[in-house]
Design a protein around this nucleic acid. Structure first.
Lengths: 217, 217
DNA sequence: GTCTATAAGCCGATAGAC
DNA sequence: GTCTATCGGCTTATAGAC
């Protein structure tokens, strides 16, 4: 008796996520994903037009959970905005020390598919990082920082740099250093604010979508 | 009549470098490298024990030229050390706007081989980045900065972050933003120096190994 | 040191039954 | 919607001649 089509599709995406993240896109065959999901390849190709389509679905499923976790880490950290952003990096460092951690799935995919610039998965990854950047920018704007977008971009650069460096060196201390740099940059920008602190509308940064998150990839 | 073994080997590495950098490690077959080098696969396997061996040789060949180019960009930029480091990022941004630019070969390889942590190519990449980090640290130490190693690491994080972000978004403006962040961090560290400026032994940072460089990968 | 030829198996994707 | 079976091509690596 056939199961629900949506449930089968979800199992395939979950299997793909595990394998693609663990071993890399091109190192994982469609056969391996189908085996892991407990379906035949024919069924997989019923739900996905191609392997590229499956890759895109893998990253799309990580978008919201990752963003929710970043927001949670920010909220859970005490202190001012500089300390809260540093808290993101410290939480990330803790998750990067897990043996199954393999860097950022979005960045690794864009590195692996660098010869396919318009690939759907790369667009999804770019959009994901932009969402983080815009969220940071809104946070800084609410603090009255003069150039919030530039500062947000620099935080993203430190974040992506720490993903890359920790993956290369397998040393989560790079993330702590990135958090310290973020703290300095934000503090420096706050010191340069003009006039009184603006009390713009507060962003709702609480993460409560019920997704079970195991760590940023 | 057989050519010099060394020259053949060099042609194979050059072909591998072009293809691995352009398309990615796992997307390029040994056949394709042999074809591009104008040798048979059997000859390639005479010079290299395996594809993994060839991957390592590809990155090893990029180590010194890349470092030399970083040093040249630093030297060629006027102003203080903060401006000179920012000059590296600006030069990098210019090279990243070239249509054939595909990010950093070291970082892309470590992303692609994330499931093989002890791979020789990853060790070579890690050593390469460490050399850059140590060079930066020595530069900052000579300037009398209090925590030169931490600052050097933060510059590396911005550098690697800009490689990753520009590859993902195909927007070299991220490198300019990274250079601005580096400028702020270095200036901030210089302002915190204690006492008089140390006049340590000068580093010879001139690049003159005669390697023809076309840009950082 | 370089060649031709081939092993032995995996790749993404599909045909057609039910 | 899921299955069995398979296509044609590509994969890393090797055997043996010269």
């Amino acid at each position: 008796m056939p199961r629900s089509g949506q449930a089968t599709r979800a199992r395939i995406v979950a299997a793909a996520s595990t394998l693609f993240y663990r071993d890399g896109i091109r190192a994982v065959s469609v056969d391996a994903v189908a085996d892991k999901a407990g379906v035949t390849k024919r069924t997989l190709y019923y739900h996905f037009a191609s392997k590229d389509d499956l890759i895109a679905a893998y990253l799309d499923a990580r978008d919201q959970p990752n963003l929710a976790l970043f927001r949670r880490w920010f909220e859970e950290t005490g202190g001012g905005v500089a300390a809260k952003v540093r808290g993101i990096f410290r939480s990330l460092a803790a998750s990067a020390r897990h043996p199954k951690w393999r860097g950022c799935g979005f960045l690794r995919t864009s590195a692996e598919l660098a010869n396919m610039p318009g690939h759907p998965a790369i667009r999804i990854g770019a959009a994901h990082k932009k969402k983080f950047e815009h969220w940071m920018g809104a946070v800084f704007a609410a603090e009255g920082i003069a150039a919030p977008a530039l500062l947000a971009r620099q935080i993203v650069l430190l974040l992506d740099g720490s993903f890359a460096a920790v993956l290369l060196h397998r040393d989560a201390a790079y993330m702590e250093a990135a958090g310290d740099a973020a703290f300095v940059l934000i503090t420096s920008a706050l010191a340069g604010r003009v006039g009184q602190r603006r009390r713009g509308r507060r962003l709702d940064t609480t993460a409560s979508n019920g997704v079970e998150v195991r760590g940023i990839r």
